[in-house]
């Protein structure tokens, strides 16, 4: 009987009776905000910092330490970097966490560990980016 599992109807009926408000709105709001940021901003940001900067296109002087730190230590630049980094993390790691369910990890301690690592990393990245950016102001 390994392959066959019976339909889980008793579970269904009990869950209909005791509906619990989910805390998912907190994570979904951050995921959604991050999704918007990643969609509108990330392609250009990746092109600039990941490809143009290391390849020195159009010219290496554009990516000097002076120019980069001037950007990061301005209020607008720091806010921009904070939003891009922290919300991208909340977006990406929320999806990674949900994928673990899709790939067959439905419950149990392993799922709790994945959840802790995903949201912990997002929270840690948020705190660190705020700390470093404020320090640079």
């Amino acid at each position: 009987m390994a392959e066959q599992s019976m339909p889980n109807q008793s579970l269904n009926q009990s869950s209909q009776r005791s509906l619990k408000r989910s805390n998912e709105p907190v994570f979904w709001a951050l995921f959604g905000a991050g999704g918007v940021v990643a969609a509108f901003l990330l392609p250009a940001v990746i092109l600039i910092t990941g490809l143009a900067a290391p390849l020195g296109i159009p010219s290496p002087e554009l990516f000097s330490y002076e120019r980069a730190s001037a950007f990061a230590s301005s209020w607008a630049g720091a806010l921009f970097l904070f939003i891009v980094i922290s919300l991208s993390l909340w977006h990406g790691l929320h999806r990674v966490y949900h994928s673990s369910h899709e790939l067959g990890i439905h419950r149990g301690p392993l799922l709790s560990v994945i959840r802790l690592v995903c949201y912990g990393t997002a929270l840690g990245g948020t705190v660190l980016s705020a700390y470093w950016l404020i320090a640079a102001l």
């Binding site: 980094i85 977006h91 990406g92 640079a136």
Partner: peptide
Amino acid sequence: MLRESTAVFVTLYALQLLYGVYTLT
């Protein structure tokens, strides 16, 4: 699933950029 897998790159890139900010400090 391909759509969902973009999240892996978004995450890794954000961590990479976070490290870049750290080097600035």
